[in-house]
Simulated scan of single mutants.
Amino acid sequence: MVDSSKLPIVAVVGLTASGKSGFSLQLAEALGERGITCEIISADAFQLYRGMDIGTAKVSLEERGGIPHHLLDVLELEEKASVATYQRSCRQVINEIRARKALPILVGGSGLYVRAALDEIEFPGTDSAVRERITAQAAQLGEEKMHQRLAEVDPESAARIFPSNVRRVIRALEVYELTGKKFSATMPRREYFQPTLQLGISWPLAVLDERISERTAQMLAHGFIEEVAQLEKQGLPDTPTACRATGYQAVMDYLAGKITQEETAEQISLQTRQLARKQRKWFRKDPRIHWLDGEAGRFANLDRALTLLGIK
């Protein structure tokens, strides 16, 4: 029997509608047949919210097949999602899963959340008073002088941040003032905090676009509009982050009579395709990801995943 403590964390990452959730369940089942208990952790910024199920493609209780899932339904709509908070929660869950002699499988397409979970990355705190003071200075002195100030204390960050990106300049100066550390020192390194195997499922973009259109139609057929109508009653339009989830504004526009249902489907599909391309750009930068060919089929990809884990 394979000792799960000897196995790396498994992360199934990549583009929306690529089949990450389904593959993670198949992989967990295959590992379970080999005596390795698995638990799944979501790395999706919007699946954190209770009630946002259909539009975020959240795996239902029935679909989970008894496999424990974590970091789903942990926030109320009015709460603000925070990648720093997610990192703390995720690391705690990973330790708890390991303590149960099980294998953590991280699944998601929110790039920064994935990196926060897996990599050595710091999230310095903030101070509203310091931020407001530096912001006021920026308004008075202008972007060039503020960028010059940053170059004096943190030349590496200044080289990376354009003067016109005032928000990032202010943040870098805030971090330096609060911590005494250069903002560049807090930048993520492609260095795992624990041994990890990252798997991605790759599709030709034309095929992925078809999958997105099909999934959009299924969401609308299975109650996405009704879900959003209920969430509107709970204050979704005024939430700090939940309302930004792909597709939800389009449905709210439909409910307000601004667009037709056909236009709603078109908008959701378009926004999802745009998201997929952003994710593709993000994840393609990480050379550590082992890409599986979506068109190769389930069994071929499971076999490769098990081989990469050193399991036959």
Rank of each mutant, 00 (worst) to 15 (best):
R288A: 15
A245H: 01
L15W: 00
V13A: 13
P240H: 08
A250V: 06
E152R: 11
D209L: 03
V130F: 00
A17W: 01
Y113L: 07
W282Y: 15
T216I: 14
K20P: 02
W291Y: 11
A305S: 15
Y49N: 06
K278H: 09
E262A: 10
R133I: 00
A221I: 02
G200P: 04
E132C: 00
E295W: 02
F162W: 07
G108L: 05
T196K: 02
K233N: 05
K233A: 15
Y113S: 06
R34E: 09
R131D: 12
S128C: 02
L27K: 09
S42Q: 05
P163H: 10
E262F: 00
K145S: 11
L61R: 11
E262L: 03
L309H: 13
A185Y: 03
R277N: 10
L205K: 04
R189T: 14
C243W: 11
G14Q: 06
D127C: 13
E29L: 04
G142R: 05
I9H: 04
R64G: 01
G235W: 03
K58H: 02
A172F: 11
D286N: 15
R171D: 06
H70F: 14
A256E: 14
A221N: 13
G247H: 01
G297M: 12
I97R: 00
I9P: 01
K58F: 01
E214I: 07
G297R: 12
D119R: 07
Y86I: 04
S89R: 15
L208S: 06
E214D: 12
E96V: 03
K101V: 02
E79I: 11
S82G: 09
D53V: 14
P188M: 10
E62D: 14
K6D: 07
V251A: 10
D154A: 10
A296H: 12
R215F: 02
T272N: 14
Y192L: 05
I259G: 01
K278W: 01
I311E: 12
I94R: 04
D73E: 13
T135S: 15
G55P: 04
Q218R: 14
E76Y: 13
L150C: 06
L25K: 07
D73Q: 08
H222Y: 04
T260S: 15
I36Y: 05
Q194A: 14
R288F: 04
R277S: 08
K80E: 15
F283A: 09
A84W: 03
A158Y: 04
V83P: 01
G66Q: 03
M52E: 06
A245W: 01
L15F: 00
Y248N: 08
A28V: 03
P204T: 07
G297L: 09
S60Q: 03
A305N: 09
L231I: 09
I9W: 02
G200I: 05
F283D: 11
F123S: 09
Q271G: 00
A17L: 02
E266A: 14
G14K: 02
Q267K: 14
E152C: 03
D73G: 07
R50D: 04
G14I: 04
P188T: 08
T37D: 10
A116R: 03
R34M: 03
S213M: 04
Q230L: 10
S5E: 12
A276H: 03
P195A: 12
R273F: 00
V93K: 14
K20N: 09
R167W: 03
G51E: 10
S202R: 15
T179W: 05
E96Q: 15
